[in-house]
């Protein structure tokens, strides 16, 4: 388990000081994948640097399994870093070491005997599916394979927390999918708390249990992935949902965004149409499975005068409905 407690990082002093992380507060349970998303400049890389203890926070704490890692001296800090495995965007593999020698690196630093090292490295490469590439140098591996070596290296010292800093950015979709799959398996097997920092929303939807949106060093919004996806008023939910193709509503028609999850029966559109006594038009829709649950979003069009009757009917059918034009204003106000 890892916990950030009022984590703050300020660069510079006095008038020129910039607050890059502003009292971040969240917790990742064992076996949970927590994604942090945000535009560049939001503080994502500083967050990664601070959690991996490469940078000391200005104030606040990083607590792993109950131990405060921020209060440590240089030597203890070195030991503490071993509880957090880090995967970097640039795989950071050493060009003059083979895959196996790269995985062995943290074990060498720790002073593990060569015999034990060999056993552990073989085990790790086996786990990430690269036993056959043990003797290959980084330049002989594909991007996805290199990142797998990076993951094996991050796991060498059996950390309880895995930090993935843009770990899939720059990989092709197939490699991304395989890395995502591997991370989920590892989470299940090892009970890892995974902090997944990224700007790629589609990867988050495939992977995360919970998501936070970082904006100007603050958590602007956070929640369980499924809750966010089915909340039409959520800015983060909107970012996470893939863009939905569609057509604009005709003049005089009211457009309504709806979203729903698996517990809503599939014939909701027909039922609501019947109940309201008018045909609802579908302007655009997308239905997909997230973590085994159906998540659907649609934009409907109906005669504007039906508004008063339609919205309660949609709510009664179990859908979240949100007229377009009265745009997610409440949520935005909370952010600002």
């Amino acid at each position: 388990m890892i916990q950030l407690d009022q984590l703050t990082k300020v660069y510079g002093h006095g008038a020129g000081a910039t607050t890059v992380l502003d009292h971040l507060d969240f917790e990742i349970a064992a076996g949970e994948i927590f994604a942090v998303v945000g535009p560049s400049g939001a503080g994502k890389s500083t967050l990664a640097q601070t959690v991996s203890l490469l940078e000391r926070p200005t104030s606040g704490r990083v607590v792993v399994n109950g131990a405060d890692l921020t209060a440590l001296g240089e030597r203890e800090l070195r030991a503490a870093r071993r509880r957090i495995g880090t995967i970097f965007q640039s795989d950071g593999l050493f060009s003059r070491r083979t895959a196996a020698q790269n995985v062995a690196l943290p074990l060498e630093f720790l002073g593990v005997t060569p015999g034990e090292r060999r056993t552990r490295v073989a085990e790790l490469l086996e786990r990430v599916g690269l036993s056959a590439k043990a003797g290959h140098y980084p330049h002989q591996l594909s991007g996805g394979q290199r990142q797998r070596v990076g993951i094996a290296r991050a796991l060498a010292l059996r950390p309880s927390v895995l930090l993935a800093d843009e770990a899939t950015s720059g990989l092709d979709p197939a490699s991304t999918a395989s890395i995502v799959g591997l991370l989920k398996e590892l989470r299940d097997e090892l009970g890892l708390s995974i902090l997944f920092i990224t700007h790629e929303m589609d990867t988050v939807v495939q992977l995360a249990d919970a998501v936070a949106r970082l904006d100007h060093g603050r958590i602007a919004e956070s929640g369980r992935l499924l809750d966010l996806l089915r909340d039409p008023a959520s800015v983060l939910g909107t970012l996470l949902r893939p863009p939905q193709p569609g057509v604009p509503a005709a003049p005089g028609e009211l457009a309504i965004d709806v979203s729903y999850t698996g517990e809503v029966a599939g014939d909701w559109l027909a039922r609501v149409s019947r109940a309201v006594g008018a045909d609802l038009h579908v302007l655009g829709a997308r239905i997909e499975q997230v973590h085994g649950e159906t998540v659907g979003t649609a934009r409907l069009a109906a005669p504007a005068e039906l508004r008063g009757r339609l919205l309660p009917l949609l709510a009664a059918a179990g859908l979240s409905a949100h007229p377009v034009g009265s745009d997610a204003a409440p949520a935005l106000e909370v952010v600002a």
Binding site: L53, R78, T86, G92, F94, P106, F109, R153
Partner: peptide, 13 residues
């Protein structure tokens, strides 16, 4: 590349 040093430090070097 500077990422090598960061990797080493994060690995407890």
């Amino acid at each position: 590349p500077g990422d090598r040093a960061r990797v080493a430090i994060a690995s407890g070097a």
